[in-house]
Design a protein around this nucleic acid. Structure first.
Length: 491
RNA sequence: CGGGAGGUAGUUCAGCCCGGUAGAAUACCUGGUUUGGGACCAGGGGGUCGCAGGUUCGAAUCCUGUCCUCCCGACCA
């Protein structure tokens, strides 16, 4: 069949590409690094987006929208920020096309050159802080808790569907606070929300931590992150939350009058997750048969496949299925009845396994006689025959079991792939043999971090929050260290 | 952005070396038989061979350029 998927063992990268393309999540386009997110992939993203959006609103945030295009001059206002993004910005230089006088289609009209070039946003700190200057005068205007759902563009050299695309969808929260402490609290609060979302909805366990200076967001004082572990033992940053200090307030001159009527610069945070989460989800759970989606964000939680001979049987099954569907929907369960006649049951089974639907229900004439259905769960591929009495409660419980089992399995894998190492030799050996996170002492210097990266391609993923303090010696240089940090090769 | 590989029907691919009427499987359409793990029979439609130049009487095939994809590297979240 054309829907063969490369096995993980044969070629992990190709397995991932096959999965994304053949399960209908996304497709390539004529533009390098840009993808079409297909309806099934978008439905998945919508469920993630809607859940996060609700969590943001529950914590007092509101949505707004800032423009796609940013005046070039804005980018140069915060030194570290420019440095971080300058190399990957797309620039708008003209505003008009014209017919080529020499024939051959349209060309850029040389007369239509912009006086000030515009940047397609790689992130929106600059345009937002420019705007905040006008919105903030007094401590009474704070905190300002705004989020936006948007697309951004970063001119990536090497792209991969969902994991690293030039254009991607994300949310970026940008908040302003009266005190350092409040801003730090906000940064940590949003990191917790990301972690909670990843674990409770995506069933992906994550480690909360702080980035080292070299991995920090350009313009941040501190970058917090959640790090996840993929099935090939590579780490993936799933979300970041930045404490921006007063860097942007100073760059864009955003001050407020405090209660003593003294002018102070405001304190800032920004935080984001992107469509990269879809890639994380795929790589964390799926198998060689296809996607495995966690029930809480799967576009369909249950698919029902009828098995019948002749119209009479079909009619009886339809009646029963309609009653089941009505009840399932009243429980808030997303259910699809696939009764199209151009594919046989076996084909449908394979198709919905490829698409990762958590629970499949097969129902035939034989089942009707016995008042049962066959349920198959995608994560373990176990089948069971279940009475139709109380079927909705049974399915509701099954979906919760699947959600929990997926998390437990991923967590077990992750925990088994955190290894304490104490010597350079062990570090190098385990990185190749086992992969995963290596928990090792580090002397705290960027030079050592760079040297390790140069030699092994592993980077410091994070310094875990609430990290145990213990005396030790740097795994690379032998210099004194007060705590272990997590190293890994990463996406 | 450097090195390598690839792009031919919706999809997977053959044809290219050695230029001469564009093929297979599968998918799709019609009709029929089927339906508990990717059904079968009969008939049918579908491709400016990624794009642009060049060589030639003639280019999917040879040459040049360019775009997209994959792998490796550099860069990057």
């Amino acid at each position: 069949m054309s829907k063969e998927i490369t096995s993980r063992e044969a070629d992990y990268s190709q397995w991932y590409n096959d999965l994304v393309l053949k399960s209908g999540l996304a497709d390539y386009t004529p533009v390098r690094g840009c993808m079409v997110i297909k309806p099934y992939g978008f439905a998945l993203w919508e469920n993630m987006r809607d859940t996060l959006d609700r969590m943001f609103k529950e914590t007092g945030h509101v949505n707004a929208y800032f423009p796609l295009l940013i005046p070039k001059s804005f980018l140069s206002k915060e030194a570290a920020h420019v440095e971080g993004f300058a190399k990957e910005c797309a620039v708008v230089t003209h505003y008009r096309l014209m017919n080529d006088p020499n024939g051959g289609g349209v060309i850029v009209d040389p007369e239509a050159k912009l006086e000030e070039e515009l940047i397609i946003r790689p992130t929106s700190e600059t345009i937002i802080w420019h705007t905040y200057k006008d919105w903030i005068q007094s401590h009474r205007d704070l905190p300002l808790l705004i989020n936006q759902w948007a697309n951004v563009m970063r001119w990536e050299m090497r792209t991969r569907l969902f994991l690293r695309t030039s254009e991607f969808l994300w949310q970026e929260g940008h908040t302003a606070h009266a005190t350092r402490q409040e801003a730090v609290e906000e940064t940590e609060r949003m990191l917790d929300i990301y972690a909670q979302f990843a674990e409770e909805f995506m069933a992906v366990p994550v480690i909360r931590g702080i980035k080292t200076a070299s991995e920090r967001f350009a313009g941040a004082e501190e970058t917090y992150c959640i790090e996840a572990m993929m099935q090939d033992g590579k780490a993936l940053q799933a979300g970041t939350s930045h404490f921006l200090g007063q860097n942007f307030a100073k760059a864009f001159d955003v001050k407020f009058a405090n209660k003593e009527n003294q002018m102070e610069y405001v304190w800032a945070t920004s935080w984001g997750v992107s469509t990269r989460l879809v890639g994380a989800l795929v790589m964390a759970h799926s198998d060689d048969e296809g996607l495995i989606l966690p029930p809480r964000i799967a576009p369909f939680q249950v698919v029902i496949v009828p098995i019948y001979k002749g119209e009479e049987q079909k009619k009886l099954i339809d009646e029963k299925v309609n009653a089941i569907m009505k009840e399932l929907k009243s429980y808030g369960i997303r259910v699809k009845y696939d009764d199209k006649d151009n594919a046989r049951p076996g084909w449908k089974f394979a198709e919905y396994e490829l698409k990762g639907v958590p629970v499949r229900m097969a129902i035939g004439a034989r089942d009707l006689e016995q008042n049962v259905v066959e349920l198959a769960r995608r994560d373990t591929r176990e089948k069971s025959t279940v009475s139709l009495d109380g079927i909705s409660d049974h399915i509701r419980q099954l979906l919760e079991d699947v959600q929990q089992a997926m998390f437990d399995k991923a967590q077990k894998f992750r925990d088994e792939h955190i290894t304490e190492v104490n010597s350079k030799e062990e570090f190098i050996r385990l990185l190749d043999e086992k992969g995963g996170f290596l928990s090792a002492h580090w002397d705290g210097s960027t030079e050592t971090e760079d040297a390790i990266k140069e030699a092994t391609k592993a980077t410091i993923r994070c310094i875990p929050l609430n990290n145990k303090q213990e005396e030790g010696k740097c795994v690379w240089t032998g210099k004194p260290s007060s705590q272990r940090v997590l190293f890994a090769r990463a996406y």
